[in-house]
Amino acid sequence: MSSAFSIGGEELASRLLVGTARYPSPEVMRRAIRAAGASVVTVGLRRQAPGERAGEDFWRLIRSLGVRLLPNTAGCRTAREAITTAHMAREIFDTRWIKLEVIGDDYTLQPDPFGLVEAARALVDDGFEVLPYTTEDLVLAQRLVDCGCRVLMPWGAPIGSGQGLLNPRALAALRHRLPDVTLIVDAGIGRPSHAAEAMELGFDAVLLNTAVAEAGDPERMAAAFARAVEAGRLAYEARPIPERDLAQASTPLIDTPFWHQH
């Protein structure tokens, strides 16, 4: 087993966090979350008409899973919208954790760094444990840490794109420069190998949704991701060998048959 992992001082059994959207059915979602072994799942908020039951039905389902909830501020385009959404989420879900999203571009769903910092500062001051969805930009990451964020969630690639880690060197630089911050790759993961790569870079956890929810068999894919995350983490803790330019025989050659010194 790999070492323990915590968010906001709370120790978590799994380094794989999953979303609750886009599954073919609530039952498939429930089975996939169980197969992922996730101890944290993300949830959202939407406008609800009077008499509509969707919210209550989802609430009951999600409570039955016995997992920690991480509400998001999806769809917010300004710091003010995100701050208000975070407060509504805190009341409904009874948690101070918030996945802070402030979107700056409709095509890439890239975070707005300026709105993100503004909202993060306000929410930390209001007592939230803020987990900002951010880019791989190092200086933005440092600003968010300055605001009091103890967890950062840089994207691997645009949300739902399944492209994997587009800028692994920048992600590695974040890990190197922010050794004490909990880093979670959020968004863009498509395959278990992408998740393993993030974990091998030393990321503390991976958060994904579409890669499991829209897989041909979400439950099986969730199980595959659980193993990939665990394998990647174990590999990081085991300290991989450095890359070399030339071959280096793995079998010791001295005194092998026909051995002679050149």
Binding site: M29, G44, L45, R46, R47, F58, T84, E91, I159
Partner: peptide
């Protein structure tokens, strides 16, 4: 602007106010 449940009784509405009522939903 968020209006906490404890203030629903005391928060007066004015002509032109925009109200959002939200509930839990699936999210990523």
């Amino acid at each position: 602007t968020f209006v906490p449940r404890a203030q629903h009784q005391h928060h007066p509405l004015r002509d032109g106010d925009e109200i959002d009522v939200v509930a839990p939903m699936q999210g990523g």
